[in-house]
């Protein structure tokens, strides 16, 4: 007969078990702390190194050339100029990409919502997921072929925004579908019961009801593309001046950072430009979080 009374004496290893439990917790906490430290370190570095450079001319003047920067450096002065060409270029391409991606993305998102269980819709959803997983550099290659080689016969804002637009598309499609799925079926049925035409239910009921969700999806998609560099190197290339011609090469803030990084005379400008870019991304994220919080 074996003893089944193991429970009645304090187990020998109790202290060591409690110690192991505490040790496990401490290790988890330390690793979690390490995980959040890069975000603090990165933002700290950008602010410390970048804030000095940010002034009015930073937003109103184009990037200096390497000669101007060299003279400023040798005189121990702040490097002149700003990143106006980058800011305008980024705005131009983001607007263009949005014009291309948002309407189509919303339509496809609605399509998936309306046909959620159909076979073809599942295929479209899978394709959307594939597209979302495609590395941005590959999208740069594609835009190079489709636009640089075929339409604008040279590097151009249009090519850059094509790459960015394709990148936005799956993000908007999925956020649209997810937003619409959250709308109670009864709201749609109420419209149907009143005999409202189908397109009016979409335009007057579903889209207004889900508006904040759709807007959040769009803002997050923009925040994802705004810092993209690699695809633009293959498509928009960059330019010294402000350019609004979509068929011409165009700069962008991340492209300028890349140029500054590669030019020893201008390397001091990377921090302020990165700070601005990062600030913009975080602002977009903050706004979308705020919109979501308000809705909930």
């Amino acid at each position: 007969m074996i003893s089944l009374t193991a429970n009645n004496k304090e187990p020998k290893g109790l202290d060591s078990r409690l110690f192991k439990d505490r040790l496990f917790k401490v290790v988890v906490f330390i690793f979690a702390f390490i995980t959040i430290s890069p975000i603090v370190l990165i933002i700290y570095k950008l602010i410390i190194k970048g804030y000095k450079q940010i002034n009015l001319s930073f937003f109103t003047e184009t990037a200096p050339d390497t000669y101007e920067a060299m003279i400023a450096l040798s005189n121990n002065e702040v490097i002149p100029g700003g990143i106006l060409n980058g800011i305008t270029g980024t705005l131009l391409m983001v607007v263009l990409a949005s014009v291309m991606a948002i309407p189509i993305g919303l339509l496809i998102g609605i399509f998936l919502y309306e046909n959620s269980t159909k076979r073809y819709a599942n295929i479209v959803r899978d394709i959307t997921d594939i597209l979302q997983g495609v590395p941005s550099i590959v999208l740069g290659l594609i835009a190079y072929f489709w636009v640089v080689k075929s339409i604008t016969n040279g590097f151009s804002a249009l090519a850059g925004s094509t790459a960015l637009g394709i990148m936005m598309l799956p993000l908007i499609i999925r956020s649209t579908e997810e937003t619409l799925k959250m709308i109670p079926e009864t709201i749609k049925e109420a419209g149907m019961a009143l005999g409202v035409p189908y397109h009016k239910i979409l335009l007057r009921v579903l889209i207004p009801t889900g508006f904040s969700g759709l807007l959040t999806g769009i803002l997050l998609a923009i925040s994802r593309i705004i810092g993209e560099t690699a695809p633009l190197m293959l498509t928009a290339l960059g330019s010294m001046g402000v350019n609004y011609n979509i068929e011409k090469p165009t700069s962008a803030v991340p492209l300028l950072i890349w140029e500054f990084y590669n030019d020893p005379n201008m390397v001091d400008l990377i921090w302020s430009s990165s700070l601005l870019l990062m600030g913009f991304v975080l602002l977009l994220n903050l706004i979308s979080k705020h919109i979501m919080a308000k809705r909930a």
């Binding site: 979690a32 959040i36 890069p38 925040s223 810092g227 950072i257 990377i270 921090w271 990165s274 990062m278």
Partner: peptide, 23 residues
Amino acid sequence: VGTMVDMLAGIPSIVYGLWGFYV
């Protein structure tokens, strides 16, 4: 903590590159 981790996804690749290079 969750928000801070999410913020990591918002940092552009090139900024990671700079931080990696200089830090």
